[in-house]
Amino acid sequence: MRIGISLPHYGAFATKEAVVEVSRAAEAMGYDSLWTGDRILAPLNPSDGYGGVPGAPMPSSFKTYFDPLTALTFAAAHTQRMRLGMSALGALWYPPVLLARTLTTLDILSGGRVDAGFGIAWMRDEYTAVNVPWKDRGGRLDETIDVLKTIWTQEIVEHHGRYFDIVPTTIEPKPLQRPHPPILLAAFAPPALERVARHADGWLPVQMPMPNLAYLWNTLKAEWDKAGREPATLRAPLRINVEPNDAPDATVKQTADYAREVFELGIDEVFIDLGQACTTLPQLLDIAGRFITVVHSG
């Protein structure tokens, strides 16, 4: 099993000092990975409820948000072995040629530690702000992944598609990881899970009731098998959004119990996000230390 933690990149914890301290402390504690999410707006009157749920308010902490890839690059400079992931980057907000260059740079500078996690997000306001159409997000994501793979694997890059056009060119350097950094996709509907099986190296699930998670996991495994993919290659780092609780022991036990259920289901990667569960950095580090100790102790 592999255990990660969210980098302090949003809300009150989004400071240079916190990124350095949490990165170093998490590696010393034995965490396997650091993760960021992506948010570019916190509208006063949003077009869509939080997570796509009508009327659901966005967490107030999302008003402050570091650029996820810059934050990971800074964390990479202060760590040696932890993998660096996104759950999930709003992939369609970035031109794929530029996204490929940024992720390649991070992969090289980190010594080949990038997990490229992509999603299509849920708020139309953010698409409007970056002048990207909301319509046909799935098709645009398919082509974005095709462009990234072409740039990362071909000596002469050329692409002529519905959304992007690249004349024959060289694009160097290539990522350190070959053939390319693992591509992980957020997905919750059957067509999206089928996209994971066709295009990606893994899935980005989030904490949900166990029956729901089991259904989606089994659906994905069936799609993975149908696509002729090797079962052992399927990854699924699951985000656990830890809820606020005044009792650290209760917080740790509840989170560890859920992680164990996830492992029993056959998903062997989780990471915890403590950004909304804690009010101080010492509290965050205390819970992080307790959590990994409890999980590793069985």
Results as ranks from 00 to 15, higher is better:
1 M>R: 11
1 M>A: 15
3 I>Q: 09
3 I>A: 08
13 F>P: 02
15 T>W: 13
17 E>V: 10
21 E>L: 11
27 E>I: 06
31 Y>I: 01
33 S>E: 07
33 S>Q: 09
34 L>A: 03
34 L>D: 01
36 T>K: 04
41 L>G: 02
42 A>E: 11
50 Y>R: 08
55 G>D: 03
58 M>D: 06
62 F>T: 14
63 K>S: 14
63 K>M: 12
64 T>Q: 13
66 F>L: 14
68 P>K: 04
70 T>E: 10
72 L>S: 05
76 A>V: 05
81 R>Y: 11
82 M>R: 00
82 M>G: 03
87 S>P: 07
89 L>G: 10
94 Y>P: 02
95 P>W: 12
97 V>A: 15
101 R>W: 07
110 S>D: 01
110 S>K: 08
112 G>Y: 06
113 R>I: 09
116 A>Q: 07
117 G>D: 10
117 G>Q: 15
118 F>C: 12
118 F>P: 10
118 F>T: 08
119 G>W: 07
120 I>W: 01
121 A>G: 11
122 W>T: 15
124 R>Q: 13
128 T>V: 13
131 N>K: 14
133 P>D: 14
134 W>N: 00
135 K>E: 13
138 G>N: 11
139 G>I: 10
141 L>C: 06
147 V>E: 03
148 L>F: 02
149 K>Q: 13
153 T>L: 11
153 T>F: 03
153 T>I: 08
155 E>G: 08
160 H>P: 01
163 Y>C: 04
163 Y>E: 05
164 F>G: 00
167 V>S: 12
168 P>D: 02
168 P>R: 05
170 T>Y: 15
180 H>D: 05
181 P>V: 02
182 P>L: 03
183 I>Q: 10
187 A>M: 03
190 P>N: 07
191 P>Y: 07
199 H>D: 09
201 D>F: 09
203 W>C: 02
204 L>P: 04
205 P>M: 11
205 P>W: 11
206 V>P: 01
210 M>Y: 09
214 A>V: 09
215 Y>G: 00
216 L>Y: 07
220 L>F: 07
228 G>D: 09
229 R>W: 04
231 P>S: 13
231 P>Y: 06
231 P>T: 04
233 T>I: 02
245 N>I: 06
245 N>C: 06
246 D>I: 11
250 A>E: 11
253 K>R: 15
253 K>P: 01
257 D>Q: 08
257 D>A: 13
258 Y>S: 09
264 E>M: 13
267 I>Q: 01
269 E>H: 15
271 F>S: 01
277 A>P: 03
279 T>S: 13
281 L>W: 09
282 P>K: 05
287 I>D: 00
292 I>W: 00
292 I>C: 02
298 G>W: 00
